[in-house]
C-alpha cells in the first residue's frame, strides 16, 4: 500500500472510525507516561521520549489468569478466556516495537504460548518515529533506529501539523483503508521532510556501545571478580527488569481462597533472591553479583546463543530509572575492558 499523510486534527475523527478496536495509547498520569486504554483522545500524549512502562503488558500482562477452579459441588476447572478483542496499539516507539519480535522468539519457541499469540494476532501496532531521543537511548547500538519499522504494522512520522503514514502490513492496511478523506497522498516535499527528520533523530542518539565481541568476552567472565565489584552498589530491586521491554520472565502461583482459586502468571525478576530459591531453601544465585551478572548474560549471551538475537533494544529505561545509576552501556564497555580472567 502507498504511503499516506494524515493531518493531526483529523486524528480524533480517525480514532472514532476505529470503534471496533480497543485502542491503547500513551497517557500521562502524575508525570508518568504509560499505555492505557484510550477513552478520550484528548488525554493521549505523544510528546514524550518514551513511556515509563513499555507496552509489553498488552501481550504479556503483569498478572494473567491461566485457569480458575471451584470445588463445590464437584471440581470445576475453567481455562482462561482468550483475549479475543481487536486491539490497536498506538504510538509505540520503534525500539519497543522491536522488542515484540524478541519476545516472539521466546513465546513461540518450543511451546507456543496461546494467550500471548492470541493477543499478538489481534493487535495492530502503530509506531511513531522517535523524533527527540532521550539521552540514555542507544537503539542504534543494538540494531535499531529511531525510525525502524521492524515489528510494526504502520509507522507514522510527525511532520509538524501532520503525520507521514507508512503502511507496512495487511493488518496495517485494515486500519488505514478507513475513510479516504482522512488520508491524502504524500508529496515529494513530505518525503524529503520525513527523511530529514529521520536523519536528525538518528544523529541525536548519542549514547552508543559496540556490542560486537561482548558475547564472546562474556564467555570468559563467568567467574570474574568484575561482577563482585559492579554489583556492590546494586540494591536488588526489580526496576531494570520490570521496565525492560524484552524482559519476559514470569512466575506461576496459585491464589487459593478456600473452595475456589486460580492459577496466575505474574512478571518475575531475576534481580531478587526469590527468583531462584529452591524449595529446599538452597539458592544457586545467592548474591547480588550472581543476579546482576545473570541479567547481563541473559541479554547478551544466553539469548543470542539460543535465538540469535540480542535481548536488548536500547530503550535506555534501565539506565534512566536505576536507583543507583548502574548503566548497562557502561557495563558493556567495562566488560570489554576487563583484563583478568579469574583463576
Amino acid at each position: 500500500m502507498d504511503d499516506m499523510i494524515i493531518k493531526k486534527d483529523k486524528l480524533p475523527k480517525w480514532s472514532s472510525e476505529l470503534s471496533d478496536y480497543k485502542i491503547f495509547a500513551p497517557h500521562r498520569e502524575d508525570d508518568v507516561v504509560i499505555f492505557k486504554e484510550m477513552k478520550n483522545v484528548n488525554k493521549v500524549v505523544l510528546h514524550y521520549a518514551n513511556s515509563v512502562m513499555p507496552p509489553k503488558e498488552i501481550f504479556f500482562p503483569q498478572t494473567q489468569e491461566l485457569f480458575k477452579y471451584e470445588k463445590s459441588p464437584e471440581m470445576k476447572v475453567s481455562e482462561a478466556e482468550l483475549p479475543l478483542e481487536k486491539v490497536l496499539l498506538f504510538g509505540v516507539r520503534p525500539c519497543d516495537a522491536r522488542s515484540f519480535l524478541i519476545m516472539d522468539k521466546l513465546f513461540y519457541w518450543d511451546y507456543e504460548d496461546h494467550l500471548y499469540k492470541q493477543a499478538r494476532d489481534n493487535t495492530v501496532i502503530i509506531g511513531l518515529t522517535c523524533t527527540s531521543p532521550h539521552h540514555n537511548c542507544f537503539c542504534t547500538s543494538v540494531g535499531g533506529k529511531p525510525y525502524s519499522n521492524e515489528g510494526l504494522d504502520v509507522l507514522m512520522t510527525d511532520l509538524g501539523d501532520r503525520y507521514y503514514v507508512e503502511v507496512l502490513t495487511e493488518k496495517g492496511e485494515d486500519v488505514i483503508r478507513k475513510p479516504d478523506e482522512l488520508f491524502s497522498k504524500p508529496t515529494d516535499k513530505d518525503r524529503k521532510e520525513r527523511g530529514e527528520i529521520w536523519e536528525k533523530a538518528e544523529s541525536e542518539v548519542t549514547k552508543n556501545v559496540e556490542v560486537e565481541g561482548v558475547h564472546d568476552k562474556l564467555g570468559e567472565l563467568f567467574e570474574s571478580k568484575y561482577w563482585d565489584e559492579k554489583s556492590r552498589t546494586c540494591v536488588g530491586c526489580g526496576i531494570c527488569s520490570f521496565l525492560c521491554p524484552t524482559c519476559h520472565c514470569f512466575d506461576i502461583t496459585d491464589e487459593d481462597c478456600g473452595n475456589c482459586g486460580r492459577r496466575i502468571r505474574t512478571w518475575d525478576t531475576c534481580m531478587i533472591p526469590e527468583y531462584t530459591v529452591h524449595a529446599s531453601g538452597y539458592n544457586p544465585r545467592p548474591g547480588k553479583k550472581n543476579r546482576l551478572k545473570n541479567r547481563v548474560f541473559h541479554k547478551f549471551r544466553y539469548f543470542p546463543d539460543r535465538f540469535d538475537a540480542i535481548a536488548c533494544v536500547g530503550c535506555g529505561r534501565c539506565i534512566s530509572k536505576c536507583p543507583v545509576g548502574i548503566d548497562i552501556v557502561e557495563t558493556l564497555e567495562e566488560v570489554k575492558e576487563v583484563e583478568e580472567v579469574e583463576e
Binding site: 503483569q62 530491586c237 526496576i239 525478576t269 536507583p323
Partner: peptide, 11 residues
C-alpha cells in the same frame, strides 16, 4: 499503577 518492582523496599 504500582508494578511491585519492590524498589521502594529495596532502597
Amino acid at each position: 499503577r504500582c508494578i511491585r518492582c519492590n524498589a521502594c523496599k529495596e532502597v
